[in-house]
């Protein structure tokens, strides 16, 4: 169900601010500053299931705790998968972890991409930068259940070709049936690049989808949302079918610390995924 949240999952820890111990099983260096960690739960208890769109609070011992989306869905007891870009103190500490090392995990939190609502429809996935991490499980699910969906369009923008995530997987997506992959970069300094240069919304203008029967899922820098939505409107895509994942400072992830407020919403609890019309007017307010 699209409304599943982990809060009622029996494997969720009882004291909501207390992490459980996990261990790095695998570490893949995606780019110079980004790694994908596969995490296994220590001890007897089973890891909770994580759905596309949800996030966990990852705790680097003595350093801090930050929200990180799941970059792969996982079932109860399965390892968790997270892709982390090192941008500051805590994300850097997490990205440095090596196989065998421990960290704390709380979660999962937040709602899910409402993919189930779009069975039989075309799916458009738009990602900017690290925004591909929370959307990768959406693409994977569509490809796993290929017959349940129409055409799949993945549009992905990065600052530079060297910052592209999941290179091998992108090639597999490109080769998948009934799938269009568009990749664009801002700059190409120092590398040979045959693909488009520029912003993602431009790719959307040319993408193939049936506007009436399409679900659009978007995650990236907030400045990307508006131009994408404008392009979607030009293509006559009803805006209720646009879903965006939003980001705000988060300390507790359980709606108590106040930090992630976005107008009436707590992003940790009411989001991070929102139907665009629910946040449209809020996104227009500067410094909300």
């Amino acid at each position: 169900m699209s409304s599943t949240t982990a809060t009622n999952s029996p494997t969720t820890v009882r004291e909501p601010m207390l992490p459980s111990t996990y261990r790095v099983l695998r570490r893949e260096q995606e780019t110079a500053d980004t790694v994908t960690l596969t995490l296994e739960r220590d001890g007897e208890a089973l890891a909770a299931a994580c759905e596309p769109g949800q996030f966990n609070m990852l705790y680097a011992f003595g350093v801090g705790e930050v929200p990180i989306s799941v970059s792969a869905a996982s079932d109860v007891g399965e390892p968790l998968v997270h892709t982390i870009r090192s941008v500051g103190k805590t994300s850097a500490a997490l990205a440095r972890l090596k196989p065998g090392q421990s960290l704390g995990v709380r979660g999962p939190f937040g709602n899910v991409w409402p993919l189930d609502d779009y069975e039989g429809h075309d799916i458009v996935v738009i990602a900017g930068g690290i925004g591909l991490a929370p959307l990768r499980p959406v693409v994977r699910r569509v490809l796993e259940r290929r017959a349940s969906f129409g055409h799949l369009v993945v549009l992905y923008g990065a600052r530079h070709p060297s910052e592209l995530l999941y290179l091998e997987e992108l090639e597999r997506w490109r080769a998948s049936p009934d799938t269009t992959l568009g990749i664009t970069v801002d700059r190409t300094t120092g590398v040979e690049w045959m693909g488009p240069v520029g912003i993602v919304p431009r790719l959307l203008a040319r993408a193939r989808f049936d506007p009436i029967e399409t679900g659009l899922f978007l995650c990236g820098p907030e400045v990307m949302i508006e131009p994408c939505v404008r392009e979607a409107l030009t293509r006559k895509l009803p805006l209720e079918q646009v879903h965006v994942s939003l980001e705000r400072n988060m300390h507790c992830a359980i709606g108590l610390c106040g930090h992630c407020q976005f107008g009436p919403h707590f992003i940790c609890r009411d989001g991070p995924v929102f139907a665009y019309p629910d946040v449209e007017s809020l996104l227009r307010v500067r410094e909300l």
Partner: peptide, 13 residues
């Protein structure tokens, strides 16, 4: 009611 969470470690780490 807003609060912040701070994680810290002793020098021994």
């Amino acid at each position: 009611f807003c609060s912040k969470i701070e994680d810290s470690s002793e020098l021994s780490a």
